[in-house]
Design a protein around this nucleic acid. Sequence first.
DNA 1: TGCGATTAGATAACAGGTTATATAACCTGT
DNA 2: ACAGGTTATATAACCTGTTATCTAATCGCA
Lengths: 184, 184
Amino acid sequence: MTNVDSTSGDIVASLGHLTLGSRLKRLGERLQGETTRFIQAQGIDLPSSWFPLLAALDRGEATVGELAEALGVSQPGVTRSVANLAGIGLVQVATGDADRRRRTVRLTGEGAALVERARRELWPRIDAAVAEACAGLEGSLLEQVGVLERRLDEVPIDRRAAAVATVPPVPPAPMAPVTAGSRP
Amino acid sequence: MTNVDSTSGDIVASLGHLTLGSRLKRLGERLQGETTRFIQAQGIDLPSSWFPLLAALDRGEATVGELAEALGVSQPGVTRSVANLAGIGLVQVATGDADRRRRTVRLTGEGAALVERARRELWPRIDAAVAEACAGLEGSLLEQVGVLERRLDEVPIDRRAAAVATVPPVPPAPMAPVTAGSRP
DNA sequence: TGCGATTAGATAACAGGTTATATAACCTGT
DNA sequence: ACAGGTTATATAACCTGTTATCTAATCGCA
């Protein structure tokens, strides 16, 4: 169970924007952790942080660099995630034949099946739960962060997701392969 | 230099609230990193993440548990930070005499001097820089996060802090908010 | 044709957050 | 008075993000 409670950070609050970085990081970790807990409760033992990569690959194969660009994370981060996913057989990696520096990543059958299932059973409920927690937030970023922290103290994401009554419809099927957006 | 740019996360955006956790975490890390860069440029070699703890201690000594509670971080996190700060002589730790399980942390002279200097020279500018980056953000949390990511792509916190023209007056002991500048 | 610059990815090291668990001190009830 | 539960802290292990740097492949061009 979560042991840290946000209802008492008067010092943090008094420091205002000085601590925004740390607060955002913690809040993000909390969301990830609670989401992962929900996923596990659904019988899938995979950290929530791997799903964006899987979702990206569900649009089609991509190189490491393209994934980093598309997901907005650093290249070493992608390299490590891909290694993890490959290690459990959800993706497979091939060295490019035209340019042998490139490594092309694609979902395996198992990976595609998992994405399919997650898209149907997991993501809509997670999305709904987070959306619910964020619903009606107003004011400055700092204020919204504070309110969200308190709301999660009351009901964490996994409980919200578990309580989603009617599972919303599947989000529309993806289409285009991953392209690294226009170079700025 | 920063290599990740937020202007292309179309996949991330399409996943909506599913990736909010990861985005918040990255955004927080980015704020911390850029702030630390500014602090270093000012000749102080200390990660920005340690300042909340120092600020808390500037209000008076406290135990590990009280600090965790006040800062909203986990107890092991405080233990580690305190060990780091003690290692460089900014705080000192004493075993409680009434209850010998408790460990009371307080600033050393050097630590207090550093806080004093930071309060004068650093924090107002950091606060102003972050406030400026966040100024006028509107809409849902998700939208605000997106806009903030893009603003930081344009001008990172350390550049904003370095550009703060007139250093605002020293905030009194419980810090007063530093008012933000106008939107870019 | 070959050499220097650039690019893609891998690797290593670090940061700062977490959870789980171990340890030691304290408290309480019989 | 002591056995057992509770509490405060420490320790260990892990996760996922980062930067910095190394290697190998490709490209550009004299």
